[in-house]
Each structure stands twice: as structure tokens, then as C-alpha cells.
């Protein structure tokens, strides 16, 4: 069985937003109880990550580290560098993921105790985002 849908997300604040409950709800509705789930984000200014849910600091530190690794164009003020906006975003894409996939068991994401699914919004002017969810299984 295959279930596929498009998820529309309202603009989120810059940073990582936990979307685990939202995704779990869609999986439950799909009636597929065993298989895999793939999420795909339709733009290059937000990405997906699986990260620790236990401590709020963890996701912020992760986002900070990744931002440092490929500095955002947000802080670039002069016009010459602004023309290079695409470069830090492309660098982040290289180290980040537009898809995540995880197993499904008994109709729920088979995640570890401390794992959560996050959408990482990278711009300070958040926009509506759309994701494709594809669930394959039985």
C-alpha cells in the first residue's frame, strides 16, 4: 500500500520546530501499520532533521553549529556579498537533508525514545512550507 499527501505548514519561526506529532497523526490516518515513511521538503530554505527531544538546548546548539558551518546570508549587509546569497544556502544543503525517512511499526513512527522530527526554518522571513509525505507498507 502507498499513501501520499502534501502537508502545508504555516510560517514557522527561524529555528527547529518539532513536527513529530503532526507526522504521527498523518501516519495513523493512513492506516498503514508497518513500513517506511519518507518526508520531503519543497524548498531550499528549510530542511528536515531528526534530533534529540530531551533538552531544548540540544536543538538550538545543533542549529547554531550548522549556521556557523555555513553562515546565513541574513547577516550579510553589503550589496556585493548579497549577490552571493545562494552560496551559504547551497553549502547548508550539502550538509543538510531535504528528506528524512524512518520506519513505521504498529501505525507509529519507530523512533528512539529521544528522537524527534524537526523542520529547520533557516530564514528570518519564514514562509508557508510544503512537505510531501510518502508512506509505503501494509
Amino acid at each position: 500500500m502507498i499513501f501520499q499527501d502534501t502537508i502545508k505548514l504555516a510560517p514557522q519561526e527561524k529555528g527547529a520546530t518539532d513536527i513529530t506529532d503532526l507526522i504521527s497523526g498523518i501516519i495513523k490516518g493512513s492506516k498503514i501499520t508497518m513500513g517506511t515513511c519518507q518526508l520531503f521538503v519543497h524548498n531550499s530554505q528549510s530542511t528536515l532533521l531528526i534530533n534529540d527531544t530531551a533538552d531544548e538546548n540540544t536543538k538550538q546548539q545543533t542549529v547554531d553549529f550548522l549556521a556557523q558551518l555555513a553562515p546565513s546570508s541574513d547577516s550579510v549587509s553589503n550589496t556585493i556579498n548579497k549577490s552571493m546569497d545562494a552560496i551559504p544556502e547551497a553549502m547548508r544543503d550539502a550538509v543538510q537533508q531535504t528528506t528524512v525517512s524512518f520506519p513505521i511499526k504498529r501505525g507509529r513512527p519507530l523512533l528512539g525514545t529521544w528522537q524527534g522530527i524537526y523542520l529547520w526554518e533557516r530564514t528570518s522571513q519564514p514562509q508557508k512550507r510544503s512537505l510531501t509525505i510518502t508512506i509505503i507498507g501494509e
Binding site: I50, N51, D52, N57, T58, T62, D64, L66, S101
Partner: peptide, 25 residues
Amino acid sequence: SKYKHNDEGPDDMAAHIRTVLTQSS
């Protein structure tokens, strides 16, 4: 010294970042 999440030692936060930079699946 920038890490705030270090309850389980100096390798705690670094381990989470290393995971995000590689693959969970």
C-alpha cells in the same frame, strides 16, 4: 564552551551534532 547541553559530559552535545551531520537512515 558554547555548548549549553553538557549534562552527560563534554562529548554529549558534540555527539548530537555529529549525528545530524551524518545519517540516521
